[in-house]
């Protein structure tokens, strides 16, 4: 294996050369989709014009279209996709189950329920929020965390069976959807249509303010995951081997679960429950770069970002002048993919 060692000493990195090429290709794909997303829509530019505009050399009109309308939602889509995919990769590693993903174990539904509850509780009579919207990710995080905890607790029965985990997840997803419906009825009426978009998962109407809260949340989360990724490698070997090799298995598992939940919470708070990304992206990534945690999570995040950006691009260009929520496309591709995985998984 040809390898690159960029750092030596206390912190060292070992990266396979082929992985570097693949990662570069993925990153190039991400940039290409980003430029295409900026260029296409109700008003179309050439990719070159869009590229120039992104760099700040476009004419004022193009600048306004790209920076006021398109960029916020593109960036929210990017962050949401990356966060969901990374969370999915972590979960699949933790429970050593290829079927685990944030939406299938009910985390996204829990986050959505908490978001609608937050909006219902903290809205006054004029539909204005009584607290800062910056708390929204925290609410989504708490919702996702509570659900994740419940799923884990209820699925535990002399150990953890992967299928049982997801069955319980399906049950709790239904419960959380019921909570969401309740909150929509109790809360202000204007929310009903907004909440509908939310549950499907959409980045429509994102603002720079949201990007400013979401991007740091996602970036910090992703960097922490990458720094800790070597511990995730140990987790993938299973408890006995990991303990034998001196890992604090329980503590690390808790840490990774918290990280995954935080990532999902941030994504759900601003993009809603975009389904199946956390399932598909890690699988595609594993095929590309193998199951070493560091490259796997990086590749999964890139692929997740590309998937959600593409879904959003398709949603706002295919059926002009109408907009279809991004979550519709991810579900339409993701559900058949999930069923295909079910057929392939043994046991």
């Amino acid at each position: 294996m040809k390898a690159i060692r960029p750092l030596r000493g206390a912190v060292s990195l070992l990266i396979e050369q082929k992985t570097v090429y693949k990662m570069t290709a993925l990153f190039a794909g991400l940039v290409a989709v980003l430029i295409a997303s900026a260029a296409l829509g109700d008003i179309k530019f050439s990719p070159i014009a869009a590229f120039q505009t992104i760099l700040g050399f476009g004419d004022p009109f193009q600048h306004m279209v790209v920076y006021s309308f398109r960029m916020p939602r593109i960036l929210v889509a990017l962050c949401a996709g990356a966060a969901l995919a990374a969370a999915g990769a972590i979960l699949q590693g933790l429970v050593r189950n290829p079927l685990a993903s944030p939406d299938l174990i009910g985390m996204t539904a829990g986050g959505s329920a908490a978001v609608t509850a937050f909006l219902a509780i903290f809205s006054d009579k004029n539909n204005a929020l009584t607290v800062s919207i910056a708390w929204l990710p925290l609410a989504a995080f708490i919702g996702a965390a509570v659900t994740a905890f419940l799923v884990y607790l209820l699925a535990w029965k002399n150990g953890m069976s992967p299928i049982r985990l997801i069955l319980i997840g399906i049950g709790l997803t239904a419960a959380m959807k019921a909570v969401t419906t309740m909150m929509m009825i109790i809360g202000p009426i204007y929310q009903a249509s907004k909440a509908n978009m939310w549950m499907t998962g959409s980045v429509n109407g994102s603002s720079w303010g949201e990007v400013m809260i979401m991007a740091p949340w996602a970036v910090i989360g992703l960097i922490s995951v990458l720094i800790a990724s070597r511990h995730l490698n140990m987790q993938q070997f299973g408890d006995e081997l990991a303990i034998g090799a001196g890992a604090h298995v329980e503590r690390q598992r808790f840490f990774f679960l918290a990280l995954a939940t935080a990532l999902v919470g941030g994504a759900v708070a601003f993009a809603g429950g975009i389904g199946f990304v956390g399932l598909m992206a890690p699988h595609i990534a594993r095929r590309l770069v193998g199951s070493h945690a560091g490259p796997l999570i990086t590749a999964a995040a890139l692929i997740g970002a590309i998937l959600v950006m593409l879904a959003d691009l398709a949603g706002r260009t295919l059926f002009l002048p109408l907009e279809v929520p991004a979550g519709v496309f991810t579900a339409a591709i993701g559900a058949p993919y999930f069923i295909y995985l079910l057929f392939r998984t043994k046991g």
Partner: peptide, 28 residues
């Protein structure tokens, strides 16, 4: 065929797909 438990999961995926697309149609 699929084992009963996997069948349940596949059904849940079908349900998720249909309900997502349903919600998508509502924007039309």
């Amino acid at each position: 065929g699929l084992t009963p438990m996997k069948m349940t999961l596949a059904g849940a995926a079908i349900a998720a797909m249909f309900s997502s697309i349903t919600q998508g149609f509502l924007v039309f």
